[in-house]
Design a protein around this nucleic acid. Structure first.
Lengths: 186, 186
DNA sequence: GTCTATACGCGGATAGAC
DNA sequence: GTCTATCCGCGTATAGAC
């Protein structure tokens, strides 16, 4: 995947619009304008609104996979646990630059309406829960960590900033019995 | 509040439609049909689509208040803690009959687009967190319990059934250090 | 209070020029 | 590959009959 193609920039604009304005106000015209092309230009790349949604879902699936791979690599290197990675990156502000977080919020906002988006969201959530369960070896702990992450996303949908719980995710993990790599025995 | 007025039945229909079909497909015609009236009939009661949304938000605010009062009463009577009440009722299936849960899911689905709905959602979330914090006396525990509830709502939006975490909410509460009233010292 | 009929604007999608 | 022009359907809202 080389640098941003026109398709990528259009998907970017779509995500941006959904996150900031909400899915109901998305029009091909608005997305096109944000991407700096005309409606016709957009429709050359994505033949329909549904195809545009598909482009975003593909991206989220890809970003999920990439993000999990990064977390696993960090865990293998002993830098930080998967749980730490998950909460740290989820704690990002919606207005920040975390591509994955933004795209995921957009997908969740659309998921209320589009079944395909709901499916992608479920897949991403499940994938993370699996990795967390694998690491902790304890289903309940994994579910709790996942729930904390879910809470962050829910608040993002509702337009709320991060809570004490997420600002202080390190304390949260301690409380749940998850230790940082440096505290673990060699 | 007497038995279902026409207004109430229209709001019911609106909530039903949003939960089952999603907010983007909501039309006055569809809601009217579901409520058993015509478009014109609906518009007599709610002068605009926005007014219809307002009706739903009022209901959620009222149900939140009532629900919290019920939980407080149960806690005062020693029947169950607020935390138990919160998780038990949140664990309900979206397809079930919990008015509050259904309405809240509808509001959250709309919250992606309508700022007013997002505000109502935040208010409801905050109110519960406050009550939980008041009971546990520990902000972190309250936040964790609230997060578990949030996770349930997020999954509801994504169309997923309840998780082990919510099926087994009693174990979850034990793990978080919240004991049932019967286990507490008199 | 509830209905039908209608005006009106907007958004998705196509055709075809450049 | 990207644009403009245009068609068409649908959804909101109003007017006014019953």
């Amino acid at each position: 995947m080389p640098r941003p193609s026109q398709r990528d920039r259009i998907v970017d604009a779509y995500v941006d619009h959904v996150v900031s304005e909400g899915p109901e106000t998305v029009t091909l015209e608005a997305v096109a304008a944000r991407a700096g092309v005309s409606k016709g230009g957009l429709l050359y790349h994505f033949g329909s609104k549904e195809a545009l949604l598909g482009g975003m879902l593909e991206r989220v699936a890809a970003l999920t996979e990439a993000d999990i791979a990064t977390a696993r690599a960090a865990a293998a290197a002993g830098t930080e646990t998967v749980a730490h990675y998950y909460l740290r990156t989820s704690a990002d502000d919606p207005a920040s630059d975390s591509d994955f977080f933004r795209a995921m919020v957009a997908v969740l906002k659309v998921a209320g309406t589009e079944e395909a988006a709901a499916t992608t969201a479920r897949a991403s959530i499940s994938a993370w829960r699996e990795v967390l369960a694998e690491e902790t070896g304890d289903e309940l702990t994994a579910d709790l960590i996942a729930a904390v992450g879910d809470g962050i996303y829910l608040r993002a949908i509702a337009g709320e900033r991060s809570t004490p719980l997420t600002r202080d995710w390190e304390t949260t993990l301690e409380r749940l019995g998850v230790r940082a790599p440096s505290e673990q025995s060699p």
